[in-house]
Amino acid sequence: MALINTEIKPFAATAFHNGAFVDVSDTDLRGKWSVVFFYPADFTFVCPTELGDLADLYEDFRAIGVEIYSVSTDTHFTHKAWHETSDTIVKVQYPMIGDPTGAITNNFEVMRPGQGLADRATFLIDPDGVIQFMEISSEGVGRNAAELLRKAKAAQYVREHPNEVCPAKWEEGDSTLAPSLDLVGKI
């Protein structure tokens, strides 16, 4: 998996978004920051907690110019049914992409062989369509939207300040580092 700093591959799919079925493609991710958030399946256990966590911080992501897209190998019809029946998923305002053919999941190399399900994987994509961050966790380990928001802010900062880097636990407003020969061995 050498996807960091690679451009996303073309895709086209249907999503459930704001009460309607909408077309979504790789071109929709261009020109803005995006999070593509894969999860195994609708109507499961850890997955709704993660989608709900992202829903709770969705406006914070949008405030910094990041759009969220959730993806599973379920259909957009299943996403609609889940949205209408779950107290947690009803909060979701971002597009829920259906990938029943597995094309998008395979493009991002997170299809579980022989299962037809996506791994629990997160990708942060810059406005040029280049993957800047990825994370994959095991089935039983849920993600943290606040930490993803922190990483999105760090990636945006580094893009805007190419001669600086964000150290561990960096938060917006904290000091950064300017890599140089003088800094080697002094941290």
Score class of each variant (00 low, 15 high):
residue 4 I to S: 01
residue 11 F to I: 02
residue 11 F to T: 00
residue 12 A to K: 04
residue 12 A to F: 04
residue 18 N to E: 15
residue 18 N to H: 14
residue 20 A to V: 10
residue 23 D to M: 10
residue 24 V to Y: 13
residue 26 D to M: 09
residue 27 T to R: 15
residue 28 D to C: 05
residue 28 D to Q: 06
residue 28 D to T: 01
residue 30 R to W: 07
residue 38 F to K: 00
residue 38 F to Q: 01
residue 41 A to C: 15
residue 44 T to F: 10
residue 49 T to P: 07
residue 50 E to I: 10
residue 54 L to K: 04
residue 54 L to I: 12
residue 60 D to L: 01
residue 62 R to W: 00
residue 63 A to R: 00
residue 66 V to S: 12
residue 67 E to N: 15
residue 68 I to Q: 08
residue 69 Y to I: 06
residue 71 V to L: 04
residue 72 S to Q: 04
residue 74 D to W: 06
residue 76 H to Q: 09
residue 78 T to K: 05
residue 85 T to C: 05
residue 85 T to N: 12
residue 85 T to G: 13
residue 87 D to N: 06
residue 89 I to V: 14
residue 91 K to Y: 00
residue 92 V to N: 07
residue 92 V to D: 07
residue 93 Q to C: 14
residue 95 P to R: 05
residue 99 D to H: 05
residue 103 A to I: 08
residue 103 A to Y: 09
residue 105 T to P: 07
residue 107 N to I: 06
residue 107 N to R: 03
residue 109 E to P: 10
residue 109 E to D: 09
residue 110 V to M: 05
residue 110 V to Y: 02
residue 111 M to W: 07
residue 113 P to N: 07
residue 113 P to E: 15
residue 113 P to L: 08
residue 114 G to V: 14
residue 116 G to Y: 03
residue 118 A to N: 08
residue 118 A to V: 04
residue 121 A to L: 03
residue 121 A to Y: 03
residue 122 T to R: 11
residue 123 F to G: 14
residue 124 L to I: 12
residue 128 D to M: 13
residue 128 D to L: 13
residue 129 G to A: 10
residue 131 I to Y: 02
residue 137 S to V: 11
residue 139 E to Y: 02
residue 139 E to Q: 01
residue 142 G to A: 06
residue 143 R to K: 11
residue 144 N to T: 06
residue 144 N to M: 07
residue 145 A to H: 03
residue 145 A to E: 05
residue 146 A to I: 03
residue 150 R to W: 07
residue 152 A to Q: 01
residue 154 A to C: 09
residue 155 A to E: 02
residue 155 A to H: 10
residue 161 H to V: 12
residue 163 N to E: 14
residue 164 E to N: 06
residue 164 E to K: 01
residue 167 P to K: 05
residue 168 A to G: 07
residue 175 S to D: 09
residue 178 A to T: 08
residue 182 D to F: 13
residue 182 D to V: 11
